[in-house]
Design a protein around this nucleic acid. Structure first.
Lengths: 215, 215
DNA sequence: AAGAAATATCACCGGCCGGTGACTTTTCGC
DNA sequence: GCGAAAAGTCACCGGCCGGTGATATTTCTT
């Protein structure tokens, strides 16, 4: 009655297609999250899933199918992470500045917690391919819906290019988290300990407050 | 009497070590800049340089040596690009805000113009390795000296975490240029045409002015 | 001109990759 | 129980990779 036990210590695996298919997707997710997109291939995935790579072709038609499956899994992962944010159950933001503060800090925490998302982002800019774009669309859709939901009917502040400004902040957060995960800092600013991140968050909060403050 | 003609249409190559060594470095630079770090290997470089890969080991001791050689070449490239910036011969910045505006826009143009630097940055966050760190140190040194030289003796504005704020802006620029080169936009904001970039520059200028304005 | 040294090329190795055809073992419908 | 279909395994292919030893060819020294 063991379910989809396919890895680690228990190599017993009953012969059910759905179970191994799920095991393959999980293994693929782990390979991508832990070893990076360079290792994202049929051999590595099958090895990790403890099955023959032939099954990958049979059940998913190749890496593309697996990428799509991970995409669905990613949607839930993002939703989950966002629901566990400290501000998840807080009242809706009262001002656009507060909205942006939540979005910026939310994205920061999400990326810090999810190596999978970091790898997808890194993959996207380092080696764009039709394969990764399947993952990107899943990510973008989820983030966009979160953003829309959080914004509600808040009017954007006038007199500025809001989209461009927002994008600058998001890009900064993304780059900072990627650099931190890869090398532990950005430039001369360390980004390792929780204190390092608190410092960075303080600065981000200040920046957001300054940029979007009401006239 | 032909010099270091090693590629393209003229396959004649006289037997001089320095010439072919130079040709190898140039080929390596091109491989990295055009095909990305995934293709940065002895086979691809030798193929492009039109010589045997054995010479790479003989003259450079392997990829590490080539990376170091590219590092030197990179220093000149950065210096060159910065000297051709529109503000290169302008008087020194009069305020910290102006200093940061120049640095932010300068970094943006530098990255936009240099696929090599973009590849190094992407490599750094996507697949950190001792190999790429050799290039990173060369880049960092050059950028740091430029930054110091430009700053002069300008006092930073009080009451804020200047380093953290600067780093946010630089990270944003880097991420925006990388995304633009890879997929042509960031999120929903297109970054393809010169008009797209002008819009982004305007926003960056506004952000810098707002963040560093004097009390 | 002869030999030494430098320059360059070639052939080969093991390893990993993506991909596929043929095979064995289990399960299921009857 | 039996046979077919499903689930899973194995062996193999060609290709590219990094790396190395042996060899050929040119140039330099004397």
């Amino acid at each position: 009655m063991t379910k989809a036990e396919a890895r680690e210590d228990a190599p017993i695996r009953t012969r059910d297609r759905d179970g191994t298919a799920r095991a393959i997707v999980i293994a693929a997710r782990e390979v991508l999250a832990e070893d990076g997109f360079q290792s994202f291939g049929v051999n590595a995935i099958a090895r990790r899933a403890g099955c023959d790579k032939q099954l990958i072709y049979r059940y998913f038609g190749g890496l593309e199918g697996i990428a799509d499956a991970i995409g669905e899994l990613l949607g839930k992962e993002i939703k989950d992470a966002l629901d566990h944010l400290p501000t998840a159950e807080a009242p809706p933001p009262a001002s656009y500045a507060e909205l942006m503060e939540r979005q910026v800090l939310g994205l920061l925490e999400l990326l810090r917690r999810s190596p999978l998302m970091r790898q997808i982002n890194a993959w996207e800019v380092a080696a764009p391919s039709p394969l990764v774009s399947r993952l990107v669309v899943a990510r973008s859709r989820q983030l966009l819906s979160w953003s829309k939901e959080l914004r509600g009917t808040l009017p954007p502040p006038p007199g500025m290019d809001v989209s461009a400004t927002n994008v600058v902040l998001f890009a900064a957060v993304q780059q900072l988290v990627l650099s931190a995960a890869a090398v532990g800092d950005y430039g001369a600013v360390p980004l390792r300990t929780e204190d390092d991140w608190d410092r960075m968050k303080k600065t981000l909060i200040r920046i957001v407050a300054t940029l979007y403050r009401e006239a």
